[in-house]
């Protein structure tokens, strides 16, 4: 117990003294996750709105695939991407393995189904009167789209925040295609795994506390958004 308490005190100290190495890892994590979330949002929010607004054959099948992909194991994405980006893989020539770009691609693959699915659900479960009310007010097709997105804005933001939570906490992809290179691709989760196994329990714990803090903030934000969307 003493070992644990001592480690905790040292961890808190290094957080409060803004330990450079510690915060650099946090910064790398945030940078990669933000990038993947932004790219996923740009692609998946419009696509999700389009899917929900159209009726087509196989829509229900597509939604069940998306539901399944929401629980995609991170190591499986890591493994596939390793195979594709690795030296002997089809895209090996680009030299992307063990770079932040590879990690962003991996996280993009991981969270796209999350964003897509939640956007489809948010748009499909929106009040059907929104469309009629905006039509009745004289909105043209483009204005109706803007009004609709405005009405479900909190649910859309919640989808994005949830995806961020999944990206920042994942370890499989970061480890397999990032390689945990210090000062380059080392993220909070990979560092926790590595430092613990190396015996630097204090450093890992400091990162653990910060990761929990981020997760807590994200969840708090999510709760507020869900309150607003009611």
């Amino acid at each position: 117990m003493e070992y644990f308490t001592e480690a905790f005190v040292i961890a808190v100290k290094s957080i409060l003294t803004f330990d450079h190495e510690l915060y650099f890892v946090v910064f790398t994590s945030l940078k990669i996750s933000f990038a993947s979330v932004i790219i996923a949002s740009i692609f998946c929010v419009p696509l999700g709105l389009l899917i929900s607004s159209r009726e087509f054959k196989g829509k229900i099948f597509l939604q069940s695939i998306l539901n399944t992909l929401m629980a995609l194991p991170t190591v499986v994405v890591g493994l596939l991407l390793y195979g594709i980006l690795g030296r002997n893989g089809p895209l090996g020539g680009f030299g992307l393995l063990y770079t932040p770009t590879a990690m962003i691609i991996g996280q993009f693959i991981l969270i796209s189904p999350v964003v897509l699915n939640l956007v489809v659900v948010a748009a499909s479960s929106a009040d059907p009167r929104i469309k009629l009310a905006s039509m009745a007010l004289g909105a043209d097709r483009y204005q109706r789209g803007i009004i609709f997105v405005g009405e479900i804005r909190f649910a859309l933001m919640a989808a994005i925040v949830m995806a961020f939570g999944r990206a920042i906490g994942e370890v499989g992809i970061a480890m397999m295609v990032g390689g945990n290179i210090e000062g380059y691709t080392r993220t909070m989760t990979t560092a926790i795994a590595l430092e613990t196994s190396k015996g630097d329990f204090e450093f890992a714990m400091a990162l653990g506390i910060l990761l929990l803090l981020i997760a807590f903030t994200v969840n708090l934000f999510l709760q507020r958004l869900q309150q607003f969307s009611k």
Binding site: R129, Q143, I147, G150
Partner: peptide, 24 residues
């Protein structure tokens, strides 16, 4: 101008709702 049965007001203030048609 059309007031539907069980009308829908947008998730904003009353004033923004009333002026929306004019804005459009």
């Amino acid at each position: 101008a059309y007031v539907q049965q069980n009308p829908y007001l947008f998730n904003d203030t009353v004033i923004k709702n009333v002026e929306l048609g004019l804005k459009l």
